[in-house]
Computed example of a mutant assay.
Amino acid sequence: MTHLRTILCSGAAGLALLSAGTASAQTKTLYVGMNGGNFERTFTQDVFPDFEKANDVKVVVVPGTSSDILAKATAAKDNPQMHVIFLDDGVMNRAITAGLCEKFKESPELGEIDKSARMKDDMAVGVDMGMTGLAYNKKMFDEEGWASPTSWMDLADPKFQDKVVFQSASASTYGLHAFLMFNRIQGGDESNVEPGFTKFGETIGQNVLEFIPNSAKISEMVQTGEAAIFPLTPTAVSTLQEKGIPVEYAQPKEGSVVLMVTQCIIANNSEPELSQKLAAYLLSADAQSKALTAGNIVPSNPNAKAATPEAEAKLAAFHDYMKTAVTLDWDVINTNRSEWNARWNRTIER
């Protein structure tokens, strides 16, 4: 009898081990393309873990700019390597047009999202609401006795010669936003960029110390005293401030430019149901409250809550900036973007 009990116990233990091994083998991985830095850190450390535990899944970030992520998704369209991607709204328009995205399924979380954050036919939905305005080196401004900037045209003020850092309009949404606002001030619009291209070099261009592909170098260039003023978002400014970098945000009188980071579910990916589930979770008030508190990521779900008075104040300031924010015509922009990029690289960022 003892021998039989031993055999049975051994068999049960073996089955338990086999079961554990099978469960472990079934743990799935979802790949999410998104911006590195603050975005990657916030979602990896504070947002994804609850979803991973609840669904026995590992979420891995594929970091890169919106342009990088779009290029990777396009190259793998026939055999998708990512499941969900985060892109700036303008770039997301291109992804949708290219057939890379799958429509969001109806869910309670989707139903809570502001209509302004739901792109056409729910092919993509905003997860971070923001705008591009101006930021400046407060330490330098204080030392020089300069007033805070109030206009996009401050980028052309002669006192900032070799002190303007400008993100490339052919590679960065921030740079494109700033260029198109300058173009509007010069009398153009998205259908007519001649004023911008004609006048940029003799105005803002005279002050540019360096054209950078993204905003990663701004922190260093502020600390070394090279950068005085540059296009940036309130969220990015808050992130730099938390690192002790002396920057401030300024809302231009002509308006900032609406910049929404959106997510889409990659069409024909290997885990369609789990991808839909993750995307819905990222729209939830719970997930967006975590992202707001941990990373200053402004929620698209109005039910998301700020955990601290500081976060609540930032959210109130954001809503105030939105009152004068400008929305660009992305259909026109994306139709002409390749031509503009080539012209920018050839005539301005030589």
Rank of each mutant, 00 (worst) to 15 (best):
K139G: 11
F141C: 08
E210C: 06
G33E: 05
A124L: 04
F104Q: 01
P195I: 03
M82E: 08
D286A: 08
S289W: 00
I333P: 00
E112Y: 00
R337L: 15
R184Y: 15
E273P: 05
S284Q: 03
R346M: 13
V247C: 05
R343C: 02
S170Q: 08
V84M: 05
S148K: 13
G225Q: 05
G36L: 00
E226C: 09
T293N: 12
T203M: 13
E102Q: 13
L110I: 02
D286R: 01
G99C: 00
M129K: 12
A73V: 08
T293C: 15
E109H: 00
A291I: 00
T324M: 05
R5P: 12
I185T: 15
G33R: 06
I69T: 11
F48M: 02
G244Q: 01
C9M: 14
F200W: 15
G33M: 03
N38L: 14
D142N: 05
E310S: 12
S270A: 11
N93H: 07
T97S: 15
Q276K: 02
L100A: 04
K277G: 04
Q263F: 02
S338N: 10
K139M: 06
D331V: 04
L232C: 10
N345H: 09
V208L: 05
A135I: 08
D286I: 03
A25T: 12
E254T: 06
P213R: 04
D89T: 10
D128Q: 12
E312W: 06
C264Q: 06
A311Q: 15
L17F: 11
M82I: 09
A13G: 14
N296D: 12
I297E: 07
N79L: 15
L134D: 11
Q161Y: 10
L4R: 10
L232R: 10
A228T: 04
L209D: 09
S24I: 12
D121N: 11
I204L: 07
S238W: 15
E271W: 07
L155C: 11
G244M: 02
K253E: 07
